[in-house]
Amino acid sequence: MSAAPSVARPSLQRAWRTARGGPGVIVAGAALAAIVASAALGPLVAPYDPHQPFVGQPFEPASFEHWLGTDAIGRDVLSRILAGAPGSVLPPFVVAVGATLLGAIVGVTAAWCGRAVDWWLSRVVDVIFAVPGLVLAVLAVAMFGKGLVAPSIALVISSLPLTARLIRVTARVELSKPYVEALHVQGTGRLAVWGRHLAPALAPTLLAQATIGFAYAMLDLAAISYLGLGVQPPSADWGSMIADGQAAILQGHPGQSLAAATLVLATVLSVSVLGAHATTWAEGTDT
C-alpha cells in the first residue's frame, strides 16, 4: 500500500506539467479566457450604447474615450465588439458541442449495431460529404431566412457524419485490441467494457473533433454574417462588423474591420492551440 502514493505522484506531476504546457499554451489560454469573459460580460461592461450613433465623430482614431475608435456613423467600436461577442462565440460553441455529441452517439451506435447500420451510415456520410458546409448553410438561409440559427443547424448536420465515422473507426480499433478480448473471456459484460474502457479511449478523438469543429464553425458562421446572411443590422457580430467596416478601409479607416478580424483569428487560433494541447494530454492519460 505504501507504494501507491509514490507511483501516483510522479504521474500526477507529469500530467500537471503537460497540462500546463509551454508559453504558447499559456498565451492561448489567457487570450481565450479574455474572449470568454468578454462574451459573458461584454454587453454589460460596454462603455457606450453599441447602437447609438454619434457618441463621437465619425472615424475617430483610438483614444481614451474610444479605445478602438469610432465607425462611419460615430458609434463606439469597442462597445460594438463587446456587444457582438456573445453572438460570435456562442453559436460556434453550440455547433461544436452539438456535432461532437451527436456524432459520438451515431458513431457508437453504428459500432454497437454492426454492419447494417454501418452501411447506412456510410451512404449518408457520402451524400452529406458531397455538400460543402457553406453551401448547406446558405441553403438553410434560403429556407428559413436570415440569422444564425438555421446556418448553425446546417453546420451541425454537415460536420456530424465525419465525427460519427471517425468515432466508429476509433471504436473498432479499440475493440479489436487484445485486452478487450481478455475482458470478455473474464466474463466482463459488453456494457461494462464500453463504459469503462471504450469511452475513455474515445475521449482524445472527441476532444480533437470538438476543437476542430469549433474553429470551422466559427469561420463558417463569421463568413455567413460577413455575406450579410447572418446577424442583421443594427445588431452586429464580428463577421458582420468586418463586412460593415470594409468600405471604410479604402478611405483609410481599417480600424473596425481589423479589430473584428483580429478577434476572430485570436479565438480560432487559441482554441486550436489549446485543443491540440488538450488532445495530447488526454492521449497521455487515458490509459
Binding site: 463569421a222 460577413y226 463577421g239 468586418i242 470594409q246 478601409i249 481599417p254 486550436s272
Partner: peptide, 18 residues
C-alpha cells in the same frame, strides 16, 4: 490555417489597394 478568406481579403484591400 486560421486565416479565412474574408480576413485575408480585408488585409489585402488595406495593404495592397489602400
Amino acid at each position: 490555417l486560421a486565416m479565412p478568406t474574408f480576413v485575408v481579403a480585408i488585409l489585402l484591400v488595406w495593404v495592397f489597394a489602400r
